[in-house]
Design a protein around this nucleic acid. Structure first.
Lengths: 225, 225, 225, 225
DNA sequence: AATGAATGAGCTTTCATTCAT
DNA sequence: GATGAATGAAAGCTCATTCAT
């Protein structure tokens, strides 16, 4: 993580196209994180992958196409990460919700390099419709999945008067904003604190499921008060 | 707001330096919002301001300096906006807090153009230390001010077990994330809903001050429960 | 003729070298006619022949060599065309001359595609000595053959004061110029008119052999005046 | 003629735009004649004009635009040349016609450099609609002007049975073809011979005006036969 | 014999910066 | 102060050529 792709051994000239594309996407992510979006050149990307200058236009149509594929890759990786977390989590809504939140701060997706790249794409989204669409789609997939979960939780509570849509919007927003802290103040932002932060706010809304310290309310307790 | 700067009348060749600088900064904001950070050129900026090509290097040291001044201007505008809101607000912590939140979604600072530019700078922050510093400072100023307010609120509650730092982090994060919605899904994100969203989460933490529907608890009620 | 070479059936990997070379030359002619000389790439040529990218450098030394062979092929085809016409023509000088002129506007050599390619090579001739030589040789072969024919005609007339060399130069020039009309104004230039044009000019010089309407003077008439 | 533009003196940085454009067009003509169309790069053109690399895209939109303007310039120069010749010529049709033919072989327009460039453009005409249009227009202007002249001559003769359109086509074609000789065999092609060639063919069609040796028939003679 | 991934030189183009006016 | 022509470095991209397979 964070280092330029290094050529360990003189690699065979012909590798599978998919592998080459992945190498180039990885190098693109490295470069955007390191140099920024505006300063990333195809020469940087090629050099980072230990390949020759013309390679990108060979495997991708253009620089723009490479960037789009990079964003697509990032999106896919993000989606797979929370999907996997959900698969592993307990069946109850609150367990699923917490798994999802943990996943958002999993070092695999939430590290300074990846976050920097996400912000780079968001930063260009307004002026590039394709990015806008891909970013909006990512959020939409995440939100849809979480909405059902929160709705169940509200019913289970029950928590009358809590609008699930508003909760989803808030959690998703808080996550993105906490990522910004990872980017801007990496010293003070850390996984544990970020998760605690989200749980604190949730505990206020869902006291029958979550204590203020972020720990889960066990069923016997819940039935009691 | 939102349109390229237009030259209404043949302006006098000699205007004050400050005015020229402001014109160029405004045009820079317009261009970043319209074309994106990476695609903004000095020619665009000059043309947007109705001025000649060489003008930027005359009034600013370089393109980089113009961008830095633009970010500084944006930061300053943001700070003045919440400062003004605070000055106008009631003296109690909860009133101040709500005023602050409202200010964050004031159309003057939270519109798609300005938000796009903020994200553009955040997107470049990792690779440009100066931006990083300016962005972190903006957040720090905001957080410091809010921290005192939340601390008072927690004491006033009292809300034992609520960590003011965590609350500040969460609100600030949620705000930034809600801005992203303005950028990515302008159709569905609006001021009223954003404010409602933040208040909902606050109501969970500070029930003696804020009802779930986001309205203020009046003092007599509070003394009751 | 006129369309890109199409691969009808999965061809055997091993075809005779000569056939491959011919395929590539045909594809080169198609590409130059379609895209122009400057825009013709080896990838175009290979794709047009339904073959792989590296093929040209395999069957020809280089792109330049392919182009030279293409010009050579064109020259050869042109020469064979008038040769064949002469073989078929009557033995008299005027019959030979008319056969030659007809041959120059035979659709096999004088169609918009082929003419475009000829002009493409002429267009590059000044800066490429090899092209210059090949083009000059083509003209020389044609002129030499025609010179003898005209000389006979002049003697047969007799047409004292008509310089055969000048006549040859003029006819050859008119032919090339009429080809340009095929290239530039294909709508109005056609075989019949082109032939009529050349014959009109010849009728003025050789009135004992050719009438103003382009038809042949029969022997009995000729003896008369 | 024929040599690269040379920088005689350290020229002032700011020259009129028109002058710069002309310099670049001249350099383009030099380069196409020297290196050919396909091998002419903007770097060559800029260097030939003694200017910096980026200059062409500054004064012309693109390379293609420069080439189009070059062709336009060439066309204009050609038209002005025969126009001027006509203005100077005697009023009679035959005098005008001969002046026109002389003009076509005037060293100002018919020299190896210029002819090479004309052929370069003709060589690319099929695949570039703009060139095609410009070239066709050039021919059309020339033909229209000459058609009237020939029609008068035919009437004056009278030369019943001579189709003026066919004569115009033939003369124009012969001219273009004789230019090709200047390009391909500069040693043997010269102004005097080219003019003699055209006149020879005309003398056959218009014997009351032109003798076989190319000299003019004086009026008294004409009335005689 | 044939393929097509890979190379890298060189192209057009862009653009921050300079500077004579 | 302000202009905009000019510069030249560096970008994205093209493509002839090479070569492992």
């Amino acid at each position: 993580m964070g280092s330029e792709a290094v050529v360990e051994k003189p690699r065979r000239r012909t590798e599978s196209k998919a592998l080459r594309r992945q190498q180039l996407i990885d190098s693109t992510i490295d470069s955007i994180a390191k140099r920024g979006f505006a300063e990333t050149t195809l020469a940087d990307v090629a050099a980072g992958a230990g390949l020759s200058r013309g390679i990108v236009n060979f495997h991708f149509e253009s620089k723009e196409q490479l960037l789009i594929e990079t964003l697509r890759h990032l999106s896919e990786e993000y989606r797979r990460n929370w999907q996997k977390a959900l698969d592993r989590a307990g069946k109850s809504p609150i367990e699923g919700l917490l798994a999802l939140i943990d996943a958002d701060f999993d070092p695999a997706v939430c590290n300074r390099k990846k976050v920097a790249v996400w912000y780079a794409f968001w930063g260009e989204a307004k002026s590039r419709p394709t990015y806008l669409k891909l970013c909006a789609d990512r959020d939409e997939a995440y939100s849809q999945m979480m909405r059902a979960m929160i709705a169940d939780l509200v019913q289970e509570g029950p928590y009358p008067g809590v609008d699930p849509d508003l909760v989803v919007t808030g959690i998703a927003a808080m996550t993105d904003g906490l990522w910004l802290d990872v980017l801007l103040t990496p010293k003070t932002a850390d996984r544990k604190q970020s998760i605690a932060c989200v749980r604190l706010f949730l505990s206020g809304l869902f006291p029958r499921h979550l204590k203020q310290d972020g720990s889960l309310v066990t069923d016997p307790e819940r039935s009691a008060p």
